[in-house]
């Protein structure tokens, strides 16, 4: 009997653990990475590997020497952070800057708060926004998606969102901008990823395939991404209906920029999203509204990163007030 285990019930465990969940997220990001490598070539590979390696190393060093605790890099969460950070960077970014971004993401975004599970903001987004504000030129000079072999010194170009924003700022209408840049506004190209942008955000289709995989593996629930999509569609649609000359149609919003990447992979980050279904829906609506406000009225062409960080700050409040419906809860009269 001396080798028998004793513990309170339950005596069996489900299959999912932190490591397997993180592995599933990594797998789900692979199609988008493949598309990115196809279009941006070596740039993607270098940036991605640098980000992952520096994130993992940074977490390991901090845990080993600063916090003097057992390093937990085996849970793969640092790899996910690195991968998502890389997805948010242009593929021609200098590796040194990538390292800097990773250090900020892990060091400031995650470990200062006590590591995995305690950070209020999505670490990868902290890294990205830090980079965006500190190095605006490098962060918004995207290479054109030309193909694997021709891409080392590829020409750079703006994203559809940036072209649109600049055009509108110059007093052009949506129709004029679209007519002036026919290459940049093909929805089919956006679906497959042949557009300018950060290395992981370009292919809507690949990201949606990953979404399907995450749902199938029950890693995330549909609530956050679908509410974000729906909110953006409705809100942008209303604006478009009201003034189609100055507000672009909702499909354009959904297909460009980081909405897919943000809604599916960053807003659903466990640690920084609400705990209840009701809360998730509110969180998603908030992100959708803030994103479109920034895109349509703000100074930046892209707003999802800021929107997610902004709503991250509300998560504790949402958790406090959005309680699940208790079993047997009796509605009070009225």
């Amino acid at each position: 009997m001396s080798n028998m285990r004793i513990s309170p019930a339950p005596h069996i465990q489900g299959k999912q653990n932190t490591r397997s969940l993180m592995r599933d997220v990594i797998i789900a990001l692979m199609p988008a990475l493949a598309v990115s490598i196809c279009f941006f070539g070596w740039g993607t590979i270098i940036v991605t590997l640098t980000a992952i390696l520096s994130c993992v190393l940074c977490e390991w060093l901090i845990q080993k020497f600063l916090l003097k605790e057992e390093p937990s890099i085996k849970d793969l969460s640092a790899i996910v952070t690195g991968l998502i950070l890389a997805f948010n960077l242009p593929s021609n970014l200098s590796p040194l800057l990538v390292v800097l971004g990773s250090v900020v993401a892990i060091g400031v975004g995650k470990m200062t708060f006590g590591g995995l599970g305690n950070n209020p903001f999505n670490p990868a987004l902290v890294g990205r926004v830090f980079m965006l504000i500190s190095f605006p030129v490098q962060m918004t000079t995207w290479p054109k998606p030309t193909g694997f072999f021709t891409s080392i010194d590829a020409v750079t170009g703006a994203t559809p969102l940036a072209i649109m924003k600049e055009g509108l700022a110059n007093g052009m209408t949506v129709q004029e901008i679209t007519a002036a840049n026919p290459d940049s506004f093909s929805y089919i190209q956006m679906l497959f990823g042949q557009i300018g942008g950060s290395l992981g955000e370009i292919s809507t289709l690949a990201l949606l395939i990953g979404f399907g995989y995450l749902l199938f593996r029950k890693v995330i629930t549909w609530h956050i991404p679908i509410t974000i999509f729906a909110t953006i569609f409705v809100f942008a649609g209303l604006l478009h209906l009201a003034d189609s000359a100055h507000f672009v149609d909702p499909l354009f919003h959904l297909l460009t920029g980081g909405i897919m990447l943000g809604a599916i992979y960053m807003a659903t980050d466990y640690v920084t999203s609400p705990m209840t279904k009701k809360g998730m829906v509110i969180f998603g609506i908030g992100i959708g509204v803030v994103t479109i406000i920034i895109r349509a009225f703000g100074g930046y062409p892209e707003g999802i990163s800021f929107a997610i960080l902004f709503m991250n700050a509300f998560v504790p409040l949402i958790n406090r007030h959005m309680k699940p419906k208790r079993f047997g809860e009796v509605k009070k009269n009225g």
Binding site: T18, L21, L116, Y270, V271, T276
Partner: peptide, 14 residues
């Protein structure tokens, strides 16, 4: 089956 495994930080997965 019976091993609970080591517990780690809550990742707030809900």
């Amino acid at each position: 089956e019976s091993s609970r495994g080591d517990s780690s930080n809550c990742i707030r997965c809900a």
